[in-house]
Amino acid sequence: MNGVHDMGGMDGFGKVEPEPNEPMFHADWESRVLAMVRAMGAAGAFNIDTSRFYRETLPPHVYLSSSYYKKWFLGLEEMLIAKGYLTREEVAAGRAVQPAKALKHGKFGLDDVERVMVRGKFARPAPVPAKFKIGDRVRAKNIHPTTHTRLPRYVRGHVGIVELNHGCHVFPDSAAMELGENPQWLYTVVFEGRDLWGADGDPTSKVSIDAFEPYLDPA
């Protein structure tokens, strides 16, 4: 979706302001939100792409004015309601009212902690041979899906070069909508800064994205 989360190339957000000696969390609740998201994901309530999609669908003004973990919290709550794990009445009441919905991997307990500390595996066996090889010229498609995609707007329509082939991976556009993993070839595609940003672009800059095969046409 063409949301405000797709920020590459936007102007007006001001300077980057690194915080000296930044703490890992700025408040206790931030760490609880992080842990809840990790735990409920690992228990099978949602996949990582779905959780990203719920944060992206927050209203633009909410997305832009909320801190990082606030976005995580709001996205988590909406997602758990939408998937039937809790109800708005329960959120309003602050306690459980309805019976629980069974989780795919059961209750998240102490024994499950170890496995959330390593990222999931996203590589999958290739259903078909790769369409592109390293060095190929490709054009990022001019597509504007209203659902989740990992093709940023700033490369759409532009020509780049295939630089790396990462094998076949879970396709976020399908997984986010719970339409299955639909594995696709994944490539690093590199673009010239001037092709993306015009004559004013930095002539010595290059930008790459990791692009799934359905995002690309031969050029």
Binding site: W29, S31, R32, V33, L34, A35, M36, R38, A39, M40, A43, A45, F73, L76, E77, Y85, L86, E90, V91, G94, R95, A96, A100, L103, K107, F108, G109, L110, D112, V113, V116, M117
Partner: peptide
């Protein structure tokens, strides 16, 4: 945010001690 954790705990989705352990890790 605490209310959400209460609900998830009461519904038997997560053990609070496991959340503590994630944060500690």
């Amino acid at each position: 945010m605490r209310a959400l954790e209460t609900i998830l705990t009461e519904k038997g989705y997560v053990e609070p001690a496991a959340l503590d352990a994630i944060i500690q890790a």
